[in-house]
Design a protein around this nucleic acid. Structure first.
Length: 960
DNA sequence: CAGTGAGCGAGCTTCCGCTTGACTT
């Protein structure tokens, strides 16, 4: 660890130096202490279930506890930052970027009690063994434990890759020291992710929409989904024809008939779907005249003519080729493949799979569920082989055990594969009484896959047959077919992987039998059917296929695949249509912004490059600070890692921010002059026609690739959206209920004014002022779904004239406004308490109301009573109270007000905490408010938003 | 994307990876 780059949590108390793990001490075996009792050791692992198991193996001289994951992290937000660092410029990030990227670590609030427990446990032992997972995160957790607990006894690192008695015993005998370089690598990863996430997300808030997010993993995941949708949108379907022929091999053959397809005419291949590009045309190599690759597309007329000309013609077997077919079993499950198969076979979401697997793990049915390894322990291999032998016989078990060493990109392989627990696997039948539902089905899947992984290859034969003939019109034609027979099923008897629905592959156990044919043999065509086909766009990603894609790119970890899917849905980037993941228009805008302005950060190989460089840090050949500096501040080009780039992230989110045109970012070109614009209130269509902007609403559930010209035209042609409530019997206008900027409202559709006659050469006359339709906001409790025509007409009747003020003669009206119902007399207004009063209040009552002074604050009778009274503020010595305000509860001493933060509650807040909030608020108050730098007449003043009160502090406000 | 009248404290949103328990309805 680079000296001075890590500040420990302020609340870890005493600052005595933590002993270095191991520190050169070699305490291999528990030696007897001076008092003669055996050495007691505390072992800390990550998972509680693991702790219980290991405790059993190690016995009473050991105390095994679980840290339950990480115990410290960077602060999530301002609320988590300890008072000591509150004011720091870097507090928002939790990383002091100007001081060697020193991280600020705090004990995760939920883990405070856990840390206390561990401290307690430490008191009664002589030695500490940090037995967190043997990967980057585990090494970091071990270091955090050391740095937080600051034990005064010897500390050593213990690692194991499987939970079995021999493995644990061996681990205790082979302790090592903490690997500080690896800890550095983890910290670098953590800081990079924080800087990326917390610097880029605010750019999205400013340019697209608040609460959006960007991150190394989620942004690439979103981009993948968007990229696929773009392909689908750009896709041009091609149609092509061929001829399906049912061949007849004669009465002796079995099967007598078999299907085949026209593949060549006069030696030139007939084009199939694969020969067409996404533009709907033959790919250039297919269209070339090169005899080897050349292909010709057959159209309907050609196919029909040829089928006709082949009627009754002699056909001969031209070639018969058979090749042996073998298939190896699939590797045992790891997290990603389990999620994929449970998704395909059981239709479980990744999240559902993990919840079920967690239960199975906790109850001792399976091994650890978050793993990127396909390795089985020796005892598990034995168990699988024994089970296979029992169930299927010796022939199904190969002589040598199978080892699966296929490495996944960036794998850390801290655990075994996911498999049934124990040295003897329980069959699904054996656990059926104890486990049911999802858990049973998932266990069965895991059990089958594990057993199958130690079984013999499937064997069979693949046969290819070509049949030739000549059409009456002279063309030489070739038909082809292929078949597969499985002579020995091997592992397929136990487990067949499911093919992704939409990918259109063929399952490994698919069989199609062909008769025994010999070259030169005559066959006849029982039927010749011209068939039309069309090419399809690449299918959308599903949860399983997206996880596969991320895994192939080395993005995300076993513990995060399920949450990645959740995050991109929660942010509104992706929604599920059945199994398919469909990107939203917001995702198009966000991905577009990232691609244009943060291209490197959403590169598909960004993570891969990062991993290489983290490996270099872990190996001690690359400096953490230097590398982060390159990433954040930019650096001397060339010498930095590939993740670093000239300019650096800081500049990209700072100075370069102004270059990002929000309007352009939020306009997604669809076709011609039509764009989808992502607005504050959702996406809508826009195009310029005759110099005027034409807009149309986009239905929420319309997938982007279904927005065709026809659909767009139809949307534009709908004059108004909104639910029609019927016709106003008085005016004859149609009344509709709509969702507007300020919420739901009703309005009337006015008939189009007659177009004035166009006079050639005459100056276009100024159009007469358009009559404005009446509008009215819905009352609370009404909805556009349920409102009736009667209610709507009542709303449109407002404002209501109550009468004239007897004193001044001014008109008093009752109307519904932004803050609810109110009376209006000139510029003087009074709020009403009830919307119904708009229709019922009499002139006398109104006059009475106007006699009352204008109320401040809430529209309740007396001054708002405080929610709670507190003691005296330590600073101002004034009594404090909690009040309810526009932004929720706040504390005030009469002068200073401060909102309660997340985590504060009205009932439980203490005087100390309240004083602290007030003090913080006062500290901020005298912030010099810069006058908004206004460029006079440089640009049109933006329309004032109702909520926009203060001038935006930064430049480049959202322009829509 | 409708247009209507006050005045009161802004503060927060967000990342990725480790782990699961625990407020109540």
């Amino acid at each position: 660890m680079t000296t001075g780059t890590t500040s420990s949590a302020p609340d870890t108390g005493e600052d005595t130096g933590a002993p270095k793990a191991g520190g050169g001490r070699r305490t291999r075996t528990p030696a007897a202490t001076a008092t003669g009792r055996p050495t007691r050791r505390l072992v800390i692992v990550e998972s509680g279930t693991k702790a219980a198991k290991i405790q059993k193996y190690l016995g009473k001289d050991y105390v095994v506890e679980a840290s339950v994951g990480h115990i410290r992290d960077l602060p999530r937000g301002a609320a988590d930052v300890p008072a000591k660092h509150k004011g720091e410029a870097w507090a928002r990030l939790g990383v002091d970027v100007d001081n060697s990227f020193a991280p600020l670590y705090i004990i995760t609030p939920e883990k405070r009690s856990k840390v206390a427990e561990l401290r307690e446990a430490l008191k009664s032992v002589d030695e500490l063994l940090l037995a967190t997972d043997p990967d980057r995160e585990g090494e970091a957790i071990a270091w955090h434990l050391l740095d937080t607990l600051k034990p005064k006894i010897p500390v050593r690192r213990m690692v194991f890759h499987e939970i079995s008695e021999p493995a644990i015993r061996a681990a205790v005998e082979n302790l090592r020291d903490l690997d500080q370089d690896m800890v550095d690598a983890q910290e670098t990863r953590r800081i990079l992710d924080r800087l990326y996430g917390y610097e880029v997300s605010p750019v999205l808030w400013k340019k697209v929409m608040p609460k959006l997010s960007a991150g190394r993993v989620q942004s690439v995941a979103t981009r993948i989904v968007v990229a696929r949708e773009r392909e689908r949108m750009a896709f041009v379907s091609a149609s092509y024809w061929d001829i399906a022929a049912q061949m007849d091999a004669g009465a002796e053959a079995t099967p007598r008939q078999f299907g085949s397809r026209l593949v060549a005419i006069d030696g030139t291949r007939v084009a199939t779907g694969r020969d067409f590009g996404p533009d709907g045309r033959l790919k250039s190599d297919a269209a070339s005249t090169d005899a080897k690759n050349g292909a010709v597309a057959l159209d309907e007329a050609g196919a029909r003519r040829l089928a006709e000309a082949l009627q009754g013609r002699d056909l001969t077997v031209e070639s018969v080729e058979s090749k042996p077919y073998t298939r190896k079993p699939y590797a045992p499950f790891m997290t990603s493949t389990l999620q994929q198969e449970a998704g395909r076979k059981l239709r479980f979401s990744a999240d559902r799979t993990m919840r079920s697997a967690q239960r199975l793990y906790e109850n001792g049915y399976i091994t650890y569920l978050r793993t990127d390894s396909t390795t089985l322990s020796p005892s598990a291999i034995d168990a699988a082989r024994n089970q296979a032998r029992e169930l299927y016989g010796d022939a199904y078990v190969p002589a040598q055990p199978r080892q699966y060493t296929r490495k996944v990109k960036n794998a850390q392989e801290a655990h075994e594969a996911i498999r049934p627990a124990g040295d003897v696997f329980r069959t699904p039948g054996e656990i059926a009484r104890e486990v049911d539902g999802d858990d049973f089905r998932l266990y069965e899947l895991i059990w089958q896959r594990t057993v199958a992984s130690q079984m013999a290859d499937a064997r069979g034969t693949t046969m290819s047959i070509r049949i030739a003939g000549t059409a009456a019109t002279g063309e030489a034609v070739t038909f082809a077919t292929s078949g597969r027979t499985i002579t020995f099923p091997g592992f397929l008897k136990a487990y067949v992987e499911t093919v992704d629905d939409q990918a259109g592959g063929e399952a490994d156990d698919a069989e199609s039998r062909l008769p025994e044919l010999t070259k030169g043999q005559a066959v006849t065509a029982a039927s010749l059917t011209p068939e039309g086909h069309s090419t399809n766009p690449p299918s959308r990603f599903t949860e399983p296929s997206l996880i596969k894609q991320l895994e192939d790119l080395g993005i995300g970890r076993p513990s995060t695949y399920a949450s990645i899917i959740k995050t991109i849905q929660d942010r509104g980037y992706v929604w599920k249509k059945g199994q398919a993941l469909v990107p939203s228009w917001i995702a198009f805008a966000v991905v577009g912004l990232l691609e244009h302005h943060f291209g490197r950060l959403v590169d598909y190989d960004f993570t891969a490059a990062m991993e290489d460089e983290l490996d270099a840090i872990a190996a001690g050949t690359q400096g953490r600070t230097h590398w982060l500096s390159g990433f954040y501040f930019g650096g001397d080009q060339g010498s930095e890692g590939s993740v670093a780039r000239a300019g650096g992230l800081k500049k990209l989110v700072g100075v370069n921010l102004e270059e990002i045109d929000a309007r352009e970012i939020n306009s997604v070109p669809v076709f011609d002059d039509v764009v989808v614009r992502v607005g504050r209130y959702g996406p809508y269509l826009e195009r310029i026609r005759d110099g005027a902007s034409q807009r149309a609403n986009l239905p929420e559930d319309l997938p982007p690739d279904e927005l065709t010209r026809e659909v767009a035209e139809q949307l534009f042609s709908v004059p108004q959206e909104g639910r029609s409530l019927g016709v106003d019997p008085i005016s004859g206008h149609e009344i509709v209920a709509k969702e507007g900027r300020y919420g739901p409202y009703v309005t009337e559709l006015l008939p189009e004014p007659e177009a004035p006659p166009v006079v050639e050469g005459a100056k276009p006359k100024k159009a007469p002022a358009k009559p404005k339709p009446r509008t009215g906001s819905l009352f609370k409790g009404m909805s556009t779904e349920t409102i009736t025509l009667e209610e709507a007409l009542r709303l449109l009747s407002l404002p209501r004239l109550v009468g004239a003020d007897p004193e001044s003669g001014e008109e008093i009206t009752a109307q519904n406004g932004r803050y609810g119902p109110y009376l209006k007399k000139g510029t003087d207004s009074r709020s009403l308490t009830d919307e119904e009063q708009l229709f019922t209040v009499t002139l006398e009552e109104a006059v009475e109301i106007y006699k009352q002074p204008k109320q401040r604050g809430r529209r309740t009778a007396a001054a708002t009573p405080p929610l709670r009274e507190l003691g005296e503020d330590v600073n101002s010595k004034k009594p404090m109270v909690i009040k309810d305000g526009r932004f929720g509860p706040y504390v005030t001493d009469g002068e200073t007000n401060a909102s309660l933060r997340k985590g504060d509650s009205v009932e439980q807040i203490t005087d100390e905490r309240a004083s602290e909030l007030l003090a913080e608020r006062r500290a901020k108050a005298p912030a010099p408010k810069k006058a908004p730098a206004r460029k006079p007449a440089a640009r049109k003043p933006a329309a004032k938003k109702p909520a926009a009160k203060r001038a935006p502090a930064k430049k480049a406000p959202v322009e829509k």
